[in-house]
Amino acid sequence: MISFLLRLAGATLSALALGLGFIWLSVASAGSAFTIENGPWQTDTRIGSAASSWTLRAQIALGGLFALKQSETLYYSASRDSAGETLDGSCVYRIEGVDPDARWWSITSYAHDNFLIPNPRGIYSISKTSVGRNADGGFLARVSHQPLDGNWIPADKNGFVLMIRLYQPTEAFRAALATAPLPRITKESCQ
């Protein structure tokens, strides 16, 4: 009897581990097929879409809870610069470009825990209406741990990601998610 109970417990634990393992595999590893790259920026076409399966719904709940459909807001994130190197919180980066083709846009930096980065200025983002402009109408902003003059958003020393939100992007933009102009991210210096 004891032998049977031990086997039952072992089999049950094995089954639970298998089931949970398959959940992790299906939720965490199926992302690349839905990811579109635009330079250093990546967007996930599942975010904001209507879920058509349990797996997709779980993926959206974990990765894009309360997201809006693409015609309302497009979300791109970047964990690397335009040279393909991982963003480093001890470096200064330049974000340069022209206005993405949308009603409004913002670029926000997040710490490795996906929350906003504390800084003495209380600045977390630049946006279409807050960014200072170059003479040609484009913009240049810097990302660094130490606050800098001019357009600036904070970096976290332990690593960070950037997110660009495009509110009501044009149809032309949505038709060219991989090629529509988005800002470049270049490393300027490191400590």
Binding site: L18, G19, T55, A58
Partner: peptide, 23 residues
């Protein structure tokens, strides 16, 4: 068979529950 059936139940029940748990 027992392990396979229980693993399937765990898989589908877990997937189904994730969004509700997040909410």
């Amino acid at each position: 068979l027992y392990v396979a059936i229980l693993a399937c139940i765990t898989y589908f029940a877990g997937l189904y529950a994730i969004p509700f748990g997040v909410m």
